[in-house]
Design a protein around this nucleic acid. Structure first.
Lengths: 189, 189
DNA sequence: CTTGCCATTTGGCAATTGTCAAACGCAGGC
DNA sequence: GCCTGCGTTTGACAATTGCCAAATGGCAAG
């Protein structure tokens, strides 16, 4: 909970009453490995702050193959933000890769916080654009690098994460096949 | 100018006085082919709405090669949004690929509109997250497609644009070399 | 018209990555 | 302990893409 508040304070100032209000609206939630926090076609009713575990934002093609857009892990927010904000159907899935513990804000709580805390929307606007821009740059950078460079960069940028996610999901994040990832890993060690 | 207002109205309601206020703050600006709308390291002082022409958001590696993250063309906003919002140094360049005509809002005008139009920030928060999410998905999708598929998708998704930008810049957007793009083009026709 | 420059195309070859099938290895259920 | 299933690794081969150098083509300046 302290981590959540510290995260928010990076993006705007909050006084003690506001912090208390936020804490009163945050609800703990756990989700099991393999289940979805949010599903394509459904309306996102909550936004989560990950306190333990890893999720992935992903989609499936017409023959059921899953592709990982990115991973979300401890001390980050996770949500289909456009679905949550405008209550439109989600475009993708958010899947728990491990058992996860979250602090969530329901849409109603979030709206109340918007109304009662002037900087609330500004904080989330900043978080949203920062995160999305970083994800966009990450994908865009990978596009012009070879697979081994992408993997090494992942290891350096997300220390330890490669050991916590299935390699098949990491491969689809990197845009390569599991076979290629396996060969690259052998090559490096 | 009507196009700019129509674009904004997609993201929130504005009454006639608000529309007039917005119009009074929008300034026309032209920039020449080859010059920068915004430069890495400098603070973005304006956000632009493109009425004519094409720009690219790009960066340069340590040996001076330029890479295109994405193109911005008519009836879209262009800015280094994190730099503009928080007045921090820009991370990348925004370069005019053709002579361009824009309607711009200075930081001061934008702030005044924020203060006088309640939905202004909400409109731009939606635009920002929609655009960034789409760009992120586009890069992420390309990562798992072969080069020819990426090129064909570009042709279909941005009709006519391939004929208006240098092929070398399109190649770097697609994450391939100009030679490869040339071969793919020959292959298709 | 000629020249020179720069973007694009082309060719040959090398490196990377994909595809497919088989083998391997580990964890959970019986 | 043994089976079974799934994720990962490995091998052989094919396809894609990169790299480098040369040729081509268009455009602008002289």
């Amino acid at each position: 909970m302290e981590a959540l508040i510290r995260y928010l304070l990076q993006y705007g100032n909050l006084n003690p009453e506001q912090i208390e209000l936020i804490q009163s609206k945050a609800e703990p939630k756990t989700i099991e490995k393999g289940t979805y926090f949010s599903e394509a076609g459904k309306i996102a009713g909550q936004i989560g702050y990950v306190t333990e575990g890893i999720l992935r934002v992903c989609y499936y093609n017409n023959i059921g193959e899953g592709f990982t857009r990115y991973f979300v892990y401890e001390n980050r927010f996770v949500a289909d933000i456009n679905s949550f904000r405008d209550q439109l159907p989600s475009s993708e899935y958010i899947e728990a890769i491990t058992d996860c513990s979250l602090m969530i804000f329901s849409k109603e709580s979030f709206t109340e916080l918007s109304n009662r805390i002037p900087v609330w929307n500004s904080i989330f606007a900043k978080i949203t654009s920062n995160v999305l821009e970083n994800k966009m740059k990450a994908s865009s950078n990978m596009l012009v690098q070879d697979a081994q460079t992408r993997y090494i960069h992942f290891l350096e940028h997300y220390p330890g994460l490669a050991n916590r996610v299935p390699l098949s999901m990491l491969a689809s994040y990197l845009g390569i096949t599991p076979s290629s990832l396996s060969r690259i890993r052998k090559n490096i060690t």
